[in-house]
Amino acid sequence: MAVARPSGSDHALLYVPGTSWLHRLNPMTKLVAVLWIAVAAFVLPTAGTIALAGLAAATGILAGAGKVFARRLAFTLTPLTVALFVVHGLLVGHGNQTDWFGLTVSRDGIAFMFHILGRIAALLAGSLLFVTTTHPARLLKALDSKGFPPGMAYLIASPLLLLDPFTTRARAIREAQSARGLDLNGSLMTRIRAFPALLMPLITLALADIDHRAQVLDGRGFRAVPRRTVLDPPPDSPAQLWARRLILISIPFQIAGGLLWR
């Protein structure tokens, strides 16, 4: 559609531009740290997961992403808290019941609620640390410069890049079909009958794109030589390399510790 769009669409939905210490960290280091947090979220006791989530959120605020953290955590945790409170605090027959503002609440149920909330908050805050401070383009360069297979980079980049054009195309197809008399707002049956008319062009066009793009990638020398040159790879340091190794080595201990203590 011939309407001016804002310059560049926003692929890095949650990315907050900045120059904090976290922003400057090599994406691989951050990726390994997220892995560590994910494992920790499952092995730590409730208090630990909540502390971890708090720590991650505090770091995020220091990195300038406070707004995103607040919004995402609130959007995810609020409905979850309500649901867990109703189901586990009130309905499911957990033991240790007590009276609370006229409601019969299970203490064990509440503990279970915090257990789940802590895990999810830690997981979410950890991943947010990564996505709010790492632009996908920088992640691609990091993967590239570490010699990861280019196919992997493609799997990350193309869904983000192609989502917009794909949505635009899907709308154009919907418009074209309704303008030729296809009823897209009718009963369920008419909608089901209309489905192939929407899906087929989308699929055939996507296949044509893939076919053509494969040729374009060949033409641009994709995989022509074993190792591609990466311009401005994200800086790395021996300290970060050792940090990553240490974190990776600690993960099995994390898991073992978690299993033994339980």
């Binding site: 692929h11 632009h135 996908p136 383009a137 691609l140 980079a153 493609y154 980049a157 193309s158 983000l160 890049l161 192609l162 054009p165 044509a208 794109d209 053509h212 793009r213 374009v216 990638l217 641009r220 994709f222």
Partner: peptide
């Protein structure tokens, strides 16, 4: 088709 000429790798 201009869009088809893009690599899909670059932001």
């Amino acid at each position: 088709v201009p869009m088809q000429q893009l690599s899909g790798f670059a932001f």
